[in-house]
Design a protein around this nucleic acid. Sequence first.
DNA 1: GACAACCTGACC
DNA 2: GGTCAGGTTGTC
Length: 266
Amino acid sequence: MPEVETIRYTLAPKIVHKTIKTVDISLAKLVIPEPQKFRAQIQGRKILRLWRRGKYLLLDLSGQLTLMIHFRMTGQLVYFPPSAPHPPYTHIVFTLNQGVLVYADLRQFGRLELLPSNKIEKHPILSKLGPEPLGIKREEFEALLKAKRVLKALLLDQNVIAGLGNIYVDEILFCAAIAPHRKACSLSRAEISRLFCCLQRILKEAILLGGSSVRNYVNGLGYKGKFQERHKVYHRRGQPCPRCGHAIVYTRLAGRGTYYCPQCQY
DNA sequence: GACAACCTGACC
DNA sequence: GGTCAGGTTGTC
């Protein structure tokens, strides 16, 4: 989510009020509807606004159209001034009235879906998303944690809270000194309180620092984030815990690689 | 809840 | 060669 939010705020000043002249799609499966319709519908539209819901980036266009993008693991959306070279793994090029907007995706998992703006609210996926982690109230958060599920799995569930990914769940749980395999309903008031504060703190800091570039993430201008330099546990297997010195442990939880300190998270 | 599938690449 | 990867979806 901090990565998507960073793409949103870096890209917006470059592309809002610009017009999409042409679109070139070299990998058909990335777009919905199929490339021919996608191109026909989007060409000539003006970009009005960029917003975000969970990990989805939404571009409101003229003519009551919205482009909904999910980047998955390796999607990139980057603005380039006229005549700049395209990055590797470029699959879609939007030529604007000034400059180009490039969608690149090494693993090809991302999707770009064009929808009538009035269908966004009822979209089968968007409408099921949980609340925004930075918009949620403490009491609301407390209520979500009544579930009997494993804490890490619960926090990663986009239908519970929309936007938390693997990096941030691990970092938030470290910050709150809570073990990822705990059952959500076993947390004390004090622990819920810590978790809530850490969630806000970590996400806000990560957004300010432009997200985490563990591999190839870049923002809307093609620059890497800096939050990976602040990771305390993520991708730090075997290294000393910054709080107690014990080696960071790597394990598998909720189907995801999970990093934590077995000594000070419990 | 676990796991394969979707892809390509980095690393040991 | 095997494992792992900012994610989600569909299947047992």
